[in-house]
């Protein structure tokens, strides 16, 4: 089965409609288990106390922030190279989700930082590069909005996404470099003993829940986009007939 099997929007919509409830249900189940383990079962950290529980939202959100950008870049590459009609839809649909995860990671990180480091924000390498990633998402979404012709907007956004994907490692490297230059002793050190299973399991389950949540939203957004296009086509047909 080639990637063109689902290039047919009807076929895709049918499959997406069937998968989506399962993904949504799985998300709910995983979230319930994950939240129970994270908030009730998992022990409080011996140093951080209960604030450590922020990690169970923060870390999966940060993982998803990066995952969504990779997804976006791969989908954009597929859209540009094979002109796959659904790939640029997938890229477009994943951008706001990724931006939301990035925002969530930034906000929860900030809330976690206040009790732990005593400040809402430090210009630490990791924080700074996540903030820049957030701006990359915003630029991508703004470009989609700005160009009226959907086809052209898709291609332009795909070019931008690939340029961004080449730049993400460079930005990450340069920010790390800048950080080691400007603040030698960082307040945050995540090393310490390897994470204990009682914390690792809730974390992994939460990460999985975020992943299925992403799939649910992605399918919903892609179906919405397809329906919007259909409505537009119908309107045009009505006007011309």
């Amino acid at each position: 089965m080639s990637i063109h099997y689902f290039a047919n929007p009807t076929r895709f919509t049918r499959l997406a409609g069937r998968v989506q409830p399962w993904a949504a249900g799985l998300t709910v189940v995983l979230l319930l288990i994950g939240l129970y383990l994270a908030l009730i079962e998992a022990p409080a950290d011996y140093q951080q106390g209960d604030t450590v529980r922020i990690m169970f939202v923060h870390v999966p959100a940060a993982w998803m922030a990066m995952f969504c950008y990779s997804f976006l870049a791969v989908a954009s590459a597929i859209a540009l190279i094979w002109r796959h009609p659904l790939a640029d839809l997938a890229a477009k649909a994943s951008a706001p989700i990724g931006a939301s995860f990035t925002f969530l990671a930034l906000v929860t990180g900030s809330i976690w930082g206040k009790p732990m480091w005593g400040t809402w924000w430090v210009w630490d390498a990791r924080l700074t590069s996540v903030l820049i990633l957030f701006f990359l998402y915003l630029g991508y979404m703004a470009l989609w909005e700005a160009i009226e012709d959907g086809q052209k907007a898709g291609k332009a956004a795909a070019v931008l996404a690939l340029v961004g994907a080449v730049n993400v490692p460079i930005i990450k490297f340069s920010v790390d470099w800048w950080n080691t230059l400007h603040q030698p002793a960082s307040v945050m050190r995540m090393d310490g003993p390897a994470i204990h299973p009682s914390m690792l399991w809730p974390l992994l389950i939460m990460a999985l829940a975020f992943q299925t949540y992403f799939v649910t939203l992605l399918l919903a957004r892609m179906r919405m986009e397809l329906n919007l296009r259909r409505i537009r086509a119908l309107r045009l047909a009505e006007r011309t007939s």
């Binding site: 820049i132 701006f135 990359l136 915003l138 630029g139 703004a142 470009l143 931008l160 340029v163 961004g164 730049n167 460079i170 930005i171 490297f173 340069s174 920010v175």
Partner: peptide, 9 residues
């Protein structure tokens, strides 16, 4: 918005 993040390095 597009260019400034890319200028950071």
């Amino acid at each position: 918005l597009l260019v400034l993040p890319l200028y950071i390095p």
